[in-house]
Amino acid sequence: MSARSSAVGVLALQGDVREHLAALAEAGAVARPVRRPEELEQVDALVIPGGESTTISKLAETFDLLDPIRKRVGAGMPVYGSCAGMIMLATEVLDGRPDQQSFGGIEMTVRRNAFGRQVDSFEAPVEITGIPGPSFHAVFIRAPWVERVADGVEVLGRVTDGPAAGRIVAVRQGNAVATAFHPELTGDRRLHQWFVDLVGRAGESAR
């Protein structure tokens, strides 16, 4: 399967689903909302959007998607999470609800709402390893950051300026990628294109 014909789902339970669908389509993927297990089975990869991680966690259980997504991610399905999606891909979440569950996929510790509340949202330049061109104009909204990563997790990007300088905001482990910021909210499609290309390569190697 080529990158341009890859079917990439967006978990459509809560959050900025429409923006990710549009960005993926512009990057050449067949973009589909995923709300049910049978829809998950029809995609080659999954994007977990920003939103509210505790709500996404609860709705994933309600819609019987928690275990199916865990199994697909554990089996190597390409997955990308932005903001709340980063939290959902973490193996450990700090400052979350005691009953909050995640999909896992990236061996990292993430601090929920680390950058502050909604009023503390900000924008900053972030360079992403492996994606050429200028820095990303990164939008952070009640964003997490990564406090610790295990061996085998590649740090792709950090905040470069301000009081949070040095904080990890983009990571990758195998086919799982996460950012603390929202590339879908800008017109820059390089990260979505990079992920769609990753999906295509994964499909080729699985043949």
Rank of each mutant, 00 (worst) to 15 (best):
M1V: 06
S2K: 05
A3H: 09
A3Q: 10
V8M: 01
V10D: 03
A12Q: 09
A12W: 09
L13I: 04
Q14A: 10
Q14V: 02
Q14R: 11
Q14D: 09
G15S: 10
D16F: 02
E19C: 06
L21W: 13
A23G: 06
A23M: 15
L24A: 11
A29G: 09
A29F: 03
R32H: 06
R35F: 00
E39I: 07
L40D: 07
Q42G: 03
D44M: 03
D44F: 00
D44A: 05
A45K: 03
L46E: 10
L46N: 03
V47I: 15
I48C: 02
I48S: 03
P49T: 12
P49W: 00
G50C: 07
G50Q: 10
S53R: 00
I56K: 04
I56G: 07
K58V: 01
L59I: 12
L59W: 10
L66I: 12
I69K: 01
K71Y: 04
R72P: 02
R72Q: 14
G74E: 14
A75Q: 15
A75L: 14
P78Q: 14
C83K: 08
A84V: 13
M86D: 13
I87N: 01
M88S: 13
L89Y: 00
A90L: 10
T91L: 12
V93S: 13
L94P: 00
R97F: 10
P98Q: 14
G105P: 02
G105A: 11
I106D: 00
M108N: 01
T109R: 12
T109F: 08
R111I: 09
R112C: 07
N113V: 06
F115H: 13
F115C: 08
G116Y: 09
G116E: 13
R117M: 07
Q118V: 08
Q118F: 04
V119N: 08
V119S: 11
V119C: 03
D120E: 02
A124W: 00
P125R: 14
T129I: 04
T129L: 15
P132H: 12
G133R: 12
P134Y: 04
S135C: 13
S135R: 15
F136M: 11
H137K: 15
V139C: 14
R142I: 13
P144D: 12
W145R: 04
W145D: 14
W145S: 01
V146D: 02
V146K: 03
R148K: 15
V149Q: 00
A150V: 04
A150S: 13
D151E: 14
V153Q: 04
V153A: 07
V155M: 06
L156C: 09
L156N: 07
G157H: 04
A165Q: 13
A165R: 14
I168Q: 04
F181Y: 11
F181N: 05
G187F: 06
R189W: 07
R190V: 08
R190A: 07
R190L: 03
R190M: 09
R190E: 04
H192Y: 03
H192M: 01
H192N: 01
H192K: 01
H192E: 06
Q193N: 06
V196N: 08
D197I: 00
V199G: 05
G200N: 11
R201P: 05
A202C: 04
S205R: 15
A206D: 05
